[in-house]
C-alpha cells in the first residue's frame, strides 16, 4: 500500500516536471509585457498569434519550409536507411561491426564538429544556401536513426516467409510488396516519423548550410528570442510542438514506447 502511494507521488512529480518548462512558453504566447513579479500575465492577448499569421508574417512560409524539408529528408532517409537496415538486421558479413559503427557515428560525434566542416563540402558541391542542400545535410542526423530502427525491425523479421513466397513463384518485387512491406510497415512509420521530427528540430546545420536563406521555425525561434520578443518566441515554440502532438494523436495505436525510444527523439 505504501509502495502504491509512493508510485502515485513519484508519478505526479514526474508529470509536473515534464510539463513545467512548457508553461511559461504557452503563457508568453498569449501575453504582453509579462515580467517579474507577475505570476500570471497582467495583459492577456491573442495579438502574438494574430501577428504570426498576419499577411506579411514570415511564420507561415517558415512552417511550409520546415515541413517540406522534414518530409523530403525523412523520405530520403527511409529510401537509404531501409535497405541498409535490412542488410544489418538480416545478415552476418565480414566488416559488419565497422559498417554499423560508421553508420551510427553521426549520433556519437557531436553535430557541431561535423557541421563546420560540412559547410566546406557543400560549398564544393554547390549545395549551400538551398533547400536541397538543407534536405541533404539533415540526412546526417536522420539517417543513423532510420538505420538504427530498421536494423532492429529486420532483426525480428522472419525472412523465411520471403523464401516461401519465392518458392511459390512470386517475383522479387511482389515479395517486397506483399511480404516484406506489410511486416515492416509499423517500423517504417516509426523511423519515418522520427526522421521527420529530427529534421524539424535542426538549427545549426540549417543555419550553416542554408546560409540563412532557408528559414525554418527553429531559426525564427532563435531570432525572436534573441531580439527579446518573448511573445513571438512563445508562439513559435507552441508551433514547434505541433507536429509531435499531431503525430502522437494520429498514431497513438501504432506507436509504442518502444518505437519512440528507438527513434531517439528530436535532436
Amino acid at each position: 500500500m505504501n509502495m502504491g502511494l509512493l508510485r502515485v507521488v513519484a508519478g505526479l512529480v514526474l508529470v509536473c516536471c515534464l510539463v513545467a518548462p512548457l508553461l511559461p512558453l504557452g503563457l508568453w504566447s498569449v501575453a504582453r509585457g509579462w515580467f517579474f513579479p507577475q505570476v500570471l500575465p497582467a495583459t492577456w492577448t491573442l495579438e502574438p498569434w494574430a501577428r504570426a499569421f498576419a499577411p506579411r508574417s514570415e511564420i507561415p512560409g517558415a512552417l511550409l519550409t520546415t515541413t517540406t524539408v522534414a518530409l523530403a529528408s525523412a523520405g530520403l532517409a527511409l529510401a537509404l536507411g531501409i535497405p541498409a537496415g535490412r542488410a544489418l538486421g538480416l545478415y552476418k558479413f565480414r566488416g559488419k561491426a565497422l559498417v554499423e559503427l560508421a553508420l551510427l557515428a553521426p549520433v556519437i560525434v557531436p553535430g557541431i564538429a561535423v557541421g563546420l566542416g560540412i559547410h566546406g563540402v557543400f560549398l564544393r558541391l554547390g549545395l549551400t544556401n538551398s533547400m536541397a542542400g538543407v534536405i541533404l545535410v539533415h540526412l546526417v542526423p536522420t539517417l543513423p536513426y532510420v538505420v538504427f530502427v530498421m536494423s532492429g525491425v529486420f532483426a525480428n523479421y522472419d525472412a523465411e516467409a520471403e523464401a516461401q513466397a519465392r518458392s511459390l513463384g512470386a517475383r522479387p518485387m511482389q515479395v517486397l510488396w506483399h511480404v516484406m512491406l506489410p511486416a515492416i510497415a509499423p517500423g517504417v512509420m516509426v523511423a519515418g516519423l522520427f526522421a521527420f521530427l529530427v529534421s524539424w528540430s535542426q538549427y545549426i546545420l540549417t543555419l550553416t548550410i542554408g546560409g540563412g536563406r532557408v528559414v525554418t521555425l527553429p531559426l525564427l525561434l532563435y531570432a525572436q528570442a534573441g531580439a527579446g520578443r518573448n511573445d513571438q518566441a512563445g508562439v513559435l515554440a507552441m508551433l514547434s510542438l505541433a507536429p509531435g502532438l499531431v503525430i502522437l494523436a494520429l498514431t497513438a495505436r501504432q506507436l509504442t514506447g518502444r518505437g519512440l525510444a528507438l527513434g531517439g527523439g528530436a535532436r
Binding site: L123, N129, L207, G212, R213
Partner: peptide, 22 residues
C-alpha cells in the same frame, strides 16, 4: 531579405564561398 542573428554569419558565408572558389 535574409534574417541573421549575427552579421558575421553572412561574412562567413561569403568568405567560405570565395575560399572554396564558388
Amino acid at each position: 531579405r535574409v534574417p541573421l542573428t549575427d552579421t558575421a554569419e553572412a561574412v562567413n558565408i561569403v568568405l567560405g564561398e570565395v575560399e572554396a572558389g564558388a
